[in-house]
Simulated scan of single mutants.
Amino acid sequence: MSRIAMPTPSASPRQLLQYVLDDDIDAALDAGLMDYVAQPGDAALDPRLPQLLQDTQRRLRDAWAARERHRARAARLARRAAEREARRAPPPAVNTKPALPPAAAAILARAKARATGKPSA
């Protein structure tokens, strides 16, 4: 029988608020800050609780989106720089003497050997 993984319980809204007030955002995230949804009784616990937690969520989402835009921009600029360098690179050197196919090279070698009077291999 397979077991369904149950989500870990989130910290209480009051604990989330304490993490945010202590500037321990990592602990707040681990405790489920981004899953927090304001409930009618939360303001009774602490009047600033719902607004502060929602503001923190918004700021984190904005920061994550900005970081993603920055990464995408950096990748785009790197790609453009590589394309620009590829256009600036000199074309590959053209071999001025075309290579002969192996059979033609063997025939030519035998002909040269006969012309010089040496036996061919």
Rank of each mutant, 00 (worst) to 15 (best):
D42Q: 07
D23F: 05
I107M: 13
P98R: 08
A27Y: 07
Q18F: 05
A78T: 07
I25L: 15
R80D: 12
G32T: 03
I25R: 10
Q18D: 14
P40F: 12
L60V: 03
G32N: 02
L49K: 14
H70T: 11
L77F: 03
D46C: 10
E68D: 12
Q39D: 14
K97H: 12
A5R: 11
P40T: 05
M6P: 03
R114K: 06
P102L: 08
M1F: 04
D23K: 12
P102I: 09
R71S: 00
P50H: 11
L52K: 03
R58D: 11
R114I: 00
A113V: 00
L53N: 05
L108A: 15
R67H: 10
R73L: 08
R69T: 00
R14H: 11
P102C: 05
L17F: 11
L33G: 02
K112G: 04
A63G: 09
R69C: 01
T116I: 15
A43K: 15
R69D: 09
A75S: 01
L16F: 09
R73P: 00
A105D: 02
A121L: 13
I25D: 04
R71V: 00
Q15I: 06
M34V: 00
R48D: 14
A121D: 14
R69E: 10
P13H: 02
K118H: 09
P101T: 13
A44W: 10
A74F: 00
A11R: 09
I25E: 09
L21P: 01
P9F: 07
D35K: 13
P102Q: 06
I4V: 07
G41V: 13
A103F: 09
P90E: 11
D62R: 05
A121R: 15
V20S: 02
L52D: 02
A63Y: 07
A5T: 13
S10T: 14
Q18S: 12
D62K: 06
A109H: 10
M1Y: 01
A115C: 01
P90Y: 02
A31S: 09
R84A: 13
T56Q: 11
G117P: 07
R73K: 08
V20D: 09
R87C: 12
E85P: 02
R114T: 07
R76D: 01
S10W: 05
P91M: 11
D26Q: 05
T8K: 15
A106V: 13
L108P: 03
R3F: 05
A31H: 07
L16N: 04
A115Y: 00
A104R: 15
L29M: 02
D24T: 04
R87N: 08
P101Y: 07
I4N: 07
E85Q: 07
